[in-house]
Amino acid sequence: MSEFNLSRREFLMGSLAGAGFLLAGERVSSDAGLNDAQVKSITLKITYTTEFLRCPKDEEIDIWLPIPPSDMEQEITDLKIETKLPYRKPSKEYDQKQNKVFYIKTKNINKGEKLTLRYTIKRTNIGTVELKDEDPQQHLTPSEWEKWDNGITQYVDTTVGKVTEPAVIARKLYDGIVERTTYMHKICTRGVSTLAFEEKSGRSDDFHALYRSMLMYKGIPVKWQQGTILPYPSEMKKSGRIEADCINAHSWLMFHAGGNRWVPVDLSEAKRRPDLKEFYFGNLVPNRIRMSTGRGLTLEPPQKEILNTFAYTNVEADGIPLIYGHNYKNFIQYEIVKMEGQN
């Protein structure tokens, strides 16, 4: 299948032209091009592949492959794993948790061996979410990377003042962080709140570690969402492939606004796309896939090393993480099935 840019006209006329994708709802683009903020949902066929380039011989290899969950924002269907390696499905108990994995224990993986996960995802921008069964208190414990020091608390106190309404506090801090933090390209960050605050720079994990630490300091529960981000709808080709490495990993947050309301925010994308700064306080462009929730996760069975975030395959040999790019690589291939505009 040849790749081509999905132009505004093709996007609008897709269903009529029989190009394999449909447009529902009203006009979603302006004359200047497709408006990313007005894309309601994207349905994609995803092929996620981990390819082994070389593996240590005669060592126990443990592999954890994250399974994207279905929830109110994303619907996963036709999920299939393809591999010659013996895999274990998530247990029933584990299945009830927010994060799921396929687990493989093996030895002597051949060069070129692949693990492939295929599924269809319909990702929808639904804005603020009502979650009745979610206990907000469980999202008030910072990970080891989200501590707050005097610099952070002073900044929060000064910025927020005497305001007590969670959404207003969240908005003031959102504006403050987006304003003061520089976005960095082509680095693999650790997402440490104190360093992000001091250095005033970083990528998604740094923006969100800092924001999370500030909200928690103010007693506002906030969930870490981890996954990957694909090209924006306005830039997305009908099909494409990205490397699923630390550069393309992406995080965002949902803070508790009181009652059952959880509000999505993406500060780093608000920084990268100033035209979407208002949008990203309460909305997410659906060009993303959530793979897990939380940081410092303990997988099933437990991995040996600390896992900062869990967006892609985690591999250990005799309990030691393999080296990405040297021992293995991950890729995500996508194919647009359908895009819908806001009604």
Binding site: C188, E243, D245, C246, I247, P321, L322, I323, Y324, G325
Partner: peptide, 10 residues
């Protein structure tokens, strides 16, 4: 460096 960084290996 660390193990998850692609560029670092290069």
């Amino acid at each position: 460096t660390h193990n998850a960084c692609h560029y670092c290996t290069q």
